[in-house]
């Protein structure tokens, strides 16, 4: 690539926010260099290269963002979505992508054959894919008229879940707790807030248990035994989502007769 020659022996350290990262992009352009690493405070990566602390300056961040917006909705969208990823290489990938984008101009988001664009696209795809899985597999439980759910995502998917659930449940108050990152999204009335949260107790009221039991029985009844294909099930619904899905508790390995008995026991108790 044309900019490979500019790689400098320096590592940028920024505060982990999007504004901070945009300032790193600014710095990279200002000094005409490509750092060999960009670290956020969460990852205490040890490097042999000298580090440079990049101060977050909202004015600079806005300049870079205006520039990105000029490149078209596709570029902006890809940058915003990919930034939610928790991939340790994401800053490097996005910096290369943005440098190429500023050099090429509009339409760069469609150049999927280019290695830098393809890398950013893969990040975007991974984040969008995970967010879509949560649209499918979130399980709400009701507590005092409010809905709550726990998820364990790899990436910061909450902002991507927001429009879908706000539209779907227009008059409901709900909370989605991202247990991996300790952030909750609370929607009440017409307002959405992101809160830091440490703990979430699952609802155990009898009504909620009754609903979950109904759902589980429906789920078991739907399975056609002669067509059993667990590999196919895992492809569509990977194991890591199972822990937050009530119908997958207890696994699906049981022989159907046994599972039905196991289900009915707590009901009789």
């Amino acid at each position: 690539m044309h900019y490979q020659a500019d790689v400098a022996d320096v590592v940028y350290r920024y505060d982990g926010t999007m504004q901070g990262f945009l300032c790193c992009v600014f710095e990279s352009f200002r000094r005409r260099e490509l750092p060999c690493g960009i670290c956020s405070p969460e990852e205490g990566r040890l490097t042999l290269f000298p580090e440079r602390e990049i101060a977050t300056d909202p004015a600079r961040a806005r300049r870079v963002l205006t520039g990105i917006e000029r490149l078209g909705g596709g570029v902006r969208q890809r940058f915003m979505t990919a930034f939610l990823s928790t991939d340790p290489e994401k800053e490097q990938i996005l910096l290369r992508y943005l440098r190429l984008a500023f050099a090429t101009g509009r339409g760069v988001d469609r150049m999927l054959g280019d290695p830098d664009v393809a890398a950013a696209w893969q990040l975007e795809r991974a984040v969008n894919g995970e967010a879509h899985h949560f649209l499918e597999f979130i399980r709400f439980e009701e507590r005092d008229g409010m809905l709550g759910a726990v998820i364990h995502p790899q990436n910061m998917v909450l902002p991507l879940l927001r429009p879908h659930f706000c539209s779907r449940l227009p008059d409901e108050a709900f909370l989605i707790y991202d247990a991996t990152h300790g952030i909750a999204m609370l929607r009440r009335g017409n307002e959405v807030r992101y809160l830091e949260m440490e703990d979430y107790d699952r609802e155990t009221s009898p009504e909620e248990q009754q609903w979950q039991m109904l759902w589980k029985r429906f789920f078991r009844a739907l399975t056609i035994e002669p067509r059993r294909n667990e590999r196919c099930q895992r492809t569509h619904c990977p194991r890591r989502f199972w822990r937050d899905m009530c119908e997958m508790q207890g696994g699906c390995l049981e022989v159907p007769g046994q599972s039905r008995k196991a289900l009915e026991e707590p009901r009789n108790a």
């Binding site: 879908h164 449940l169 739907l222 056609i224 059993r228 196919c232």
Partner: peptide
């Protein structure tokens, strides 16, 4: 899209919500 006063929305590609052990979507 959703609308105040009612419940629910639809998206054109559809959404699967669970997969039974036979691999079919619910």
């Amino acid at each position: 899209g959703g609308r105040h006063g009612s419940l629910g929305s639809c998206v054109a590609p559809g959404i699967c919500h669970a997969f039974t052990p036979d691999g079919r979507c619910v």
